[in-house]
Design a binder for these strands. Sequence first.
DNA 1: AACTTGTTTACGTTGAGCTAGAATAACTTA
DNA 2: TAAGTTATTCTAGCTCAACGTAAACAAGTT
Lengths: 119, 119
Amino acid sequence: MLVTIDRASSVSLAEQIAASVRRNITEGKIQPGDRLPPARTLAHALDINMHTVLRGYQILKEEELIELRRGRGAVVIAAALTQAPVIEACQRFIHIAVKTGMTAPEILQMVKSRLDPLI
Amino acid sequence: MLVTIDRASSVSLAEQIAASVRRNITEGKIQPGDRLPPARTLAHALDINMHTVLRGYQILKEEELIELRRGRGAVVIAAALTQAPVIEACQRFIHIAVKTGMTAPEILQMVKSRLDPLI
DNA sequence: AACTTGTTTACGTTGAGCTAGAATAACTTA
DNA sequence: TAAGTTATTCTAGCTCAACGTAAACAAGTT
């Protein structure tokens, strides 16, 4: 299963589907030209509604990561996404934290406590 | 108006209030020792409910950026000036990471691996 | 004592997200 | 051309969190 979701998460299912696909593109597991599963198929596999899957696909379409065509499905158009923005944000955060005088455990704890509500 | 909100935003009003105050502290527009407007006053000025403002203040209290006391109101804590920017950077990082599709363990690992060399 | 301001409780309202079903349009394939 | 596939659109209902309303209360300040 390439696309996965977590019903316990507070992040909406549509956003999770978009994030999951985005991640697969970043990791190169999905290449430009590849087709995503048809909404009905994926919906059935994940045991969620087709409309919810399509909402996730719609998010990716607005980000110009995929193309949606009736009869053909969802096709990836974007080249591999870079994780540069994440790394940059991570480094920036750590830099400020260290500069402030926080210890490693404190920094980790800060991330952990802010991550919990999202799971 | 030091504290502002955007009703069109998908971010909750309480979070927006907390973010707005945090930003003002980071930018030095609000100094440690300063008092935030009383919840009732700010609620009236922004045309929202007192509970919503207090919910925002509560977030800042949990982050140890302000102190809440009955009769005295919300006062910015001394250490707030150094902590606010870290919290902002942390939230920004997590936001991007989640959007990219990273899982909680992966996000933690990313921080950890970048933290190790510093110890 | 009077006033200010956060705290708590209880309940009502609203909107976003999800589900469901059905009809329709565009594309593919035989 | 015909049949099958798949996204698109519409209507409608459900649930839950966010937000609002109202009121009484507690701990400060003046």
